[in-house]
Nucleic acid binder design. Structure first.
Lengths: 303, 303
DNA sequence: TCTTGTTTCATCGGCAACCAAAATACAATA
DNA sequence: TATTGTATTTTGGTTGCCGATGAAACAAGA
């Protein structure tokens, strides 16, 4: 078959997987209806990629029945944008982060010694060396591990330590409220309403196994979004690093459901204030929210 | 000759070069006298390395005449520690940073397009691919460049932009004074006095060509030292990143000598306050110092 | 002319192998 | 016994190559 020259039988590649949710996001935010024509070049430009991976992703969606395809006519929505089920798609949390997560987790659980070499890790986790190096560099960025001068890598003694947790909150407590108060702070009303929807949906839905990850990502998006609105790239970078660190350190929520409710409620309160541009109060609430979170102790895990 | 099995004729390797100043630093801070015996194992342990590179570094120093070597007796200081001339040694500003510096510089000068591929860079700068990748990742860490989703890398539009400068100062203005005021802040008196010496020496010496780099590194050490004293690893990481960013963006001082004097004076004032543990005033001075610096505009360069 | 289909070219990442040198174990000597 | 000298093992940076795939040019059809 000539028409799938560029799509391998084994399925979508990494880039193509990453593209899928973004394409669906565009379809949704554009409010496209059934029958709308998806132009390849336009998508490619908006996604900062060439047509090739876009085509592949579209073909994948066509196979899933989300799109219809007719020769010489391209891809067309087979259903309204907001009815597309998201769960069929691989959530794709950035693969490389997955590995960081796994290694950090193994270290915390004591399955890895405090000092390791690349070779050991390569033997333990079957992965290409360049990938491992990028993983290690990424862990080093958030100070979870450190290159020894000669050979070998040294995990920070205190990954799981309460100390690191405290420092992290101290840091965020400094940056996040300051962002909200920055003169350059400007929040997109659309972002506010979308964020509110997500929180309300989280509160409404029953607690499932996967909710933990969803919750984490929603929280991360909330905090990063606030800082992004201050339009200071360095603050944003710093907070993103914190997010990554926390992602590696605790992906699962162990504080009980009532804390979920409390956290969401606090977020919603902050959003309300920001919707009315009451930034002083919002910043104060944010500060208290972080304080509340920092006071929690993991009840179950014996770290 | 069997005795130099481990030292290649082409000279010290990267690790060995990095070891040289650290060894000399240890000799100095231990206040060793002429004739003192340098034990290999002890050095290796203190430097977190094996004996091999230590030996090589010591042999190098012996060739330079700093040490004497006798068979079966090891290395011995041929002169008192504080009389060792530091300038014969390669200063070694972390090679990888050198490359970042060069690439960032070429971009700023317009010698590189806004969008590049790995292959182009490999052709332009002769370097191994893994090294280039680490350089690019490092530049990405400070938001000077960004990986496109598919192929290619995109320089941030505003490397040299006044905007980035402003954001950087805003960020540091937030973090650095907060560090000084942190409850955990604790400064080593030795650090204070050494830092004061360096500043006084800088003021006393005439302005040479190389003073620019010296000045930059001294400033960096000053600001990083203050933040390090707050004992919050994330604040420290953030400030170190800022330092690296500034190192890449402007290694040369273009504000005139009177600003050098002013800056050093301000630093000394802050050090005085800190010596008396007057942290509130020190923090205020630090804030003003950063404000002063942020208001400067590069007079000469036409970016 | 604009969009899709097809082909070509360049790029990138994985893989295997190589080699300098770092780590380590062992021998020799003060 | 402590320290240096020597040999061995292991590591990690480097190189070259190959295949998958993204980018880009071209062709064809609405």
């Amino acid at each position: 078959m000539k028409q799938e020259t560029h799509l391998r039988a084994n399925g979508p590649t990494r880039l193509q997987r990453d593209l899928l949710p973004r394409i669906i996001g565009l379809i949704r935010s554009d409010g496209l209806e059934r029958g709308a024509h998806l132009r390849e070049v336009a998508l490619a430009r908006r996604l900062q990629v060439s047509r090739t991976p876009v085509r592949a992703a579209l073909e994948f969606l066509a196979k899933r029945g989300v799109l219809d395809w007719r020769p010489r006519r391209g891809f067309v929505l087979s259903q309204p944008g907001d009815s597309i089920a998201a769960d069929g798609l691989p959530p794709a949390p950035a693969e490389i982060d997955q590995l960081c997560l796994k290694i950090a987790g193994d270290r915390m659980a004591g399955r890895l010694p405090i000092e390791v070499t690349q070779a050991e890790l390569l033997r333990r986790y079957a992965m290409p060396r360049p990938l491992l190096l990028r993983v290690l560099d990424k862990l080093a960025e958030v100070a979870l591990i450190e290159r020894k001068p000669g050979h070998g890598w040294l995990f920070s003694p205190a990954i799981d330590d309460a100390q690191a947790r405290m420092e992290s909150y101290e840091f965020r407590r400094l940056i996040e409220p300051a962002s909200v108060l920055a003169p350059s702070f400007k929040l997109d009303p659309l972002w506010i309403s979308e964020m509110r929807h997500r929180h309300e949906a989280m509160l409404a839905a029953p607690w499932r196994e996967t909710s933990s990850i969803e919750l984490f990502e929603m929280n991360a998006a909330f905090h990063e979004g606030l800082v992004a609105a201050a339009r200071n790239r360095f603050m944003l970078i710093a907070v993103q690093q914190q997010t990554r660190l926390r992602r590696f350190a605790n992906y699962n929520w162990t504080y009980g459901y009532e804390r979920v409710v409390a956290s969401c409620t606090e977020h919603l309160e902050i959003l309300d204030r920001l919707a009315h541009n009451d930034r002083e109060v919002a910043a104060a609430l944010l500060r208290r929210h972080l304080d509340n979170a920092s006071k929690l102790r993991r009840p179950t895990e014996p770290y």
